[in-house]
């Protein structure tokens, strides 16, 4: 993404951070998406970040996560790099929504949501953590 606008945010694995990070993402997206589409991006990112915070650091472990946000005229990209336990969300099977609703389940759809709403890629980091990239095209007429 040559010539892209970029912003870097660092946060700890604390659910109290979620609201602040959503605000950061909303400010970064600005007017390049209309508000329902902007909310979908914020939702996808919130799900990915909440999963890292809730499940990435078991047994009370502490960690920091880096979020790098980039945008140019055609694309939005968000890269999450953490030092959490290895987890490749692309290896999960598709969610069974009918089963979810019929059984009154209360969780487990976060990965489904961000995989549905964004283009997702994953790679392990050399230090044993994870790098998760969520991106989407900015279509004409979105803003």
């Amino acid at each position: 993404m040559a010539g892209a606008i970029e912003k870097r945010v660092i946060f700890t694995n604390d659910l109290d951070e979620l609201s602040r990070i959503r605000d950061e993402i909303q400010d970064f997206i600005g007017d390049c998406l209309e508000y329902v589409e902007r909310n979908r991006v914020i939702l996808a990112m919130d799900e990915a970040i909440a999963n890292i915070i809730k499940y990435g650091y078991p047994n009370g472990g502490r960690g920091t996560v880096e979020l790098v946000m980039r945008r140019d005229d055609v694309r939005l990209e968000f890269v999450l790099t953490d030092d959490a336990v290895p987890f490749n969300p692309l290896e999960l099977p598709d969610a069974d929504l009918e089963h979810y609703h019929n059984t009154g389940a209360s969780g487990g759809l976060g990965v489904y949501l961000y995989r549905r709403l964004m283009d997702v890629s994953y790679e392990p980091t050399p230090s044993g953590g994870n790098r998760l990239t969520l991106s989407r095209r900015i279509n004409e007429g979105d803003s």
Binding site: N39, I42, A50, T103, G104, S106, G107, G108, G110
Partner: peptide, 17 residues
């Protein structure tokens, strides 16, 4: 103002109950 899957999950479980 905002709802994520965690909020919908709580509503889904309560609805079934």
């Amino acid at each position: 103002k905002y709802i994520s899957s965690a909020g919908i999950g709580v509503l889904n479980a309560a609805l079934s109950a």
